Amino acid sequence: MDNQTAEPVEVPLNIAVLTVSDTRTPETDKSGDTLVKCLEEAGHKLGDRAIVPDDIYKLRATLSNWIADEKIHCIISTGGTGFSGRDSTPEAVTPLLDKVIDGFGEIFRMVSYDEIKTSTIQSRAIGGLANSTLVFCLPGSTGACRTGWYKVIQDQLDSRHRPCNYVALLTKGNAQHV
Rank of each mutant, 00 (worst) to 15 (best):
A50W: 01
K117A: 13
V167S: 08
I107S: 09
F136T: 03
G140F: 04
K30N: 08
G82D: 02
E106N: 12
T120L: 10
L59D: 06
D54M: 14
V100W: 00
D33N: 11
R60N: 11
T34N: 03
G143H: 01
L96A: 05
N65K: 12
K99G: 00
D102I: 11
A144E: 06
L97T: 02
T142Y: 04
T118L: 13
A125N: 07
V100L: 10
E27K: 12
L59A: 11
W149A: 03
K58V: 12
K172P: 14
D155H: 14
D2R: 12
I67D: 06
G80D: 06
D55K: 01
P163Y: 10
C38F: 07
S77L: 06
D33F: 13
G140Y: 07
A92S: 08
G47N: 12
T25N: 10
K30Q: 13
V111Q: 04
G105M: 14
E40L: 09
V36H: 03
R49N: 10
V20G: 01
L138D: 10
T147L: 11
R146M: 13
P26D: 12
T23Q: 04
P53H: 11
S88E: 11
V135M: 02
Y57T: 07
Y57N: 13
K117Y: 14
T89M: 06
G79T: 08
R146K: 15
T118N: 14
T78E: 07
R160T: 14
K45D: 09
N65R: 08
S31K: 02
I101Q: 03
V167L: 06
L129I: 15
T171M: 09
A125E: 03
I107H: 07
Q156F: 15
L138F: 10
D33L: 11
I121L: 10
T81N: 04
K117M: 11
G85A: 14
L39R: 00
H177N: 15
C145T: 14
P8R: 10
L170H: 09
A50C: 07
S31Q: 06
E115R: 05
I75G: 07
R86F: 13
I153G: 09
E70I: 02
I15F: 05
G32E: 04
H161V: 08
A168R: 13
S77H: 00
E106I: 08
T142M: 01
E27H: 10
V100G: 00
S119R: 12
C145A: 15
V152L: 09
V178R: 14
I116A: 02
Q156Y: 15
M1Q: 09
V52L: 00
